[in-house]
């Protein structure tokens, strides 16, 4: 999952990013002013935006309004130090999905981020199951036929994305967009390396293939559409 944090307090943004990377295996981008934040939010397919309201340049509410007017459906979690209820109401009415008031609890922030992402992929159950495989997205726990499987962060990130989109064809470009943050080196063949590693660890092989490769189209987890 790839997340954008728009927050002018640099160190707070870094702390949130660190917590989200470590705990939820998210790819996280940071933007510390309104203009850059708006630009980033428009140009990348984020799974979630954590948006501060008090920003230099363009304010958080303006960014939100701008995104929604252009049909951007990305979930937005509003962060605000202003506990005035009107701000929260305005934020939600302009298309915000959830809010947190500073100072907040990091655990709560992570949980809310994950909940918003699950909703967005239409998988309200935090435990996603595909055949013998089940992925607990809140605890980052992968089990195969009841046996826990330990995965490195990038592999888990890839698997989580594929499992949340189970039954759909996922292109390699989409995977790259959702796996890496802005600063990461992007080698698309790395995706193939991770896929084959996941197959080795999880896939029982034909005829019960878990991860299908659809040549020229992408990948698919779960049952192939007939």
């Amino acid at each position: 999952m790839r997340i954008l944090i728009v927050e002018d307090e640099v160190r707070l943004a870094r702390n949130i990013a660190k917590a989200l990377r470590e705990t939820a295996s998210f790819a996280v981008d940071i933007s510390t002013d309104g203009e850059d934040g708006q630009h980033q939010a428009q140009s990348n397919p984020y799974d979630l935006i954590v948006l501060d309201l008090m920003l230099p340049g363009i304010g958080g509410l303006d960014i939100l309004q701008h995104l929604r007017r252009r049909g951007n459906r990305v979930p937005v979690l509003i962060l605000t130090a202003r506990d005035a209820t009107e701000d929260v109401i305005r934020g939600l009415n302009l298309g915000g999905d959830d809010y947190l008031i500073k100072p907040f609890d990091m655990g709560e922030l992570i949980a809310r981020c994950q909940a918003l992402i699950r909703r967005n992929y239409d998988r309200p159950d935090p435990v996603a199951s595909v055949g013998p495989l089940s992925v607990d997205t809140s605890a980052r726990l992968v089990t195969l036929r009841g046996q826990p499987v330990v995965l490195p962060a990038m592999e888990y990130r890839l698997l989580e994305y594929l499992v949340l989109r189970a039954g759909q064809i996922v292109t390699k470009e989409e995977i790259v967009e959702h796996l890496y943050d802005f600063h990461a080196e992007r080698f698309s063949n790395v995706v193939e390396v991770y896929i084959s590693s996941l197959r080795r660890k999880l896939d029982p092989g034909p005829p019960h293939e878990l991860i299908h490769t659809l040549r020229g189209q992408g990948y698919l987890v779960g049952e192939l559409p007939r």
């Binding site: 707070l12 702390n15 660190k18 990091m106 655990g107």
Partner: peptide, 21 residues
Amino acid sequence: AHELRTPVTVLKSALQTTNLQ
């Protein structure tokens, strides 16, 4: 209060992030 809240927020986030694992 608002000005105090900002460093408190940052401080809390730093400590909680460190304490996550």
